Amino acid sequence: MPEMIRHAPGWPAWVDLLTPDLASSKAFYSELFGWHGYTLTTPSFGDYEIFTLGDAQGPEVAGMQELPDDTQASSWTCYFMTEDVRATLETIRDEGGQELIAPFWIADLGEMALCCDREGADFALWRPGNLRGAGVVDEPSSMCRVELACHDAEEARRFYGRVFGWNVAERQGPSRRTEWRLGEWPLGGLVSIDELRPHGLGDQAHWVPFFQVTDCDAAVARAARYGARPLLPATDASLGRYAVMADPVGAHLAVVAPPEP
Rank of each mutant, 00 (worst) to 15 (best):
234 A>I: 11
180 W>V: 10
183 G>H: 10
109 L>P: 02
230 P>V: 13
69 D>N: 15
103 P>I: 03
255 V>A: 10
163 V>M: 07
240 G>H: 10
260 E>Q: 15
53 L>P: 00
215 D>Y: 07
190 L>G: 06
72 Q>W: 13
154 E>T: 12
132 R>I: 14
132 R>W: 01
153 A>R: 12
109 L>K: 03
166 W>A: 03
193 I>D: 02
201 L>Q: 02
182 L>A: 06
144 C>W: 03
33 F>K: 08
233 P>Q: 07
46 G>T: 10
76 W>S: 04
245 M>R: 00
161 G>K: 10
208 V>Q: 04
235 T>E: 13
117 D>E: 09
50 I>T: 05
154 E>S: 15
191 V>E: 04
10 G>R: 02
82 T>W: 03
100 L>F: 06
146 V>I: 12
68 P>T: 14
233 P>M: 09
106 I>L: 09
162 R>I: 04
4 M>Y: 02
222 R>Y: 00
230 P>Y: 11
171 R>S: 11
25 S>E: 01
68 P>A: 14
216 C>L: 06
140 P>V: 02
4 M>G: 00
213 V>Y: 03
66 E>T: 11
158 R>K: 11
31 E>N: 09
142 S>G: 08
221 A>N: 09
73 A>F: 07
108 D>H: 09
225 R>S: 14
123 F>M: 06
35 W>L: 07
54 G>Y: 03
120 G>P: 08
172 Q>K: 10
181 R>G: 09
17 L>R: 00
161 G>I: 02
189 G>K: 02
231 L>K: 04
36 H>W: 02
9 P>D: 10
88 T>V: 07
186 P>H: 06
173 G>Q: 01
110 G>A: 07
228 A>R: 03
98 Q>K: 14
145 R>N: 08
261 P>D: 12
201 L>M: 12
14 W>P: 00
81 M>F: 05
261 P>K: 14
29 Y>R: 09
121 A>M: 13
224 A>I: 15
106 I>C: 01
166 W>F: 09
6 R>I: 12
183 G>F: 08
142 S>N: 05
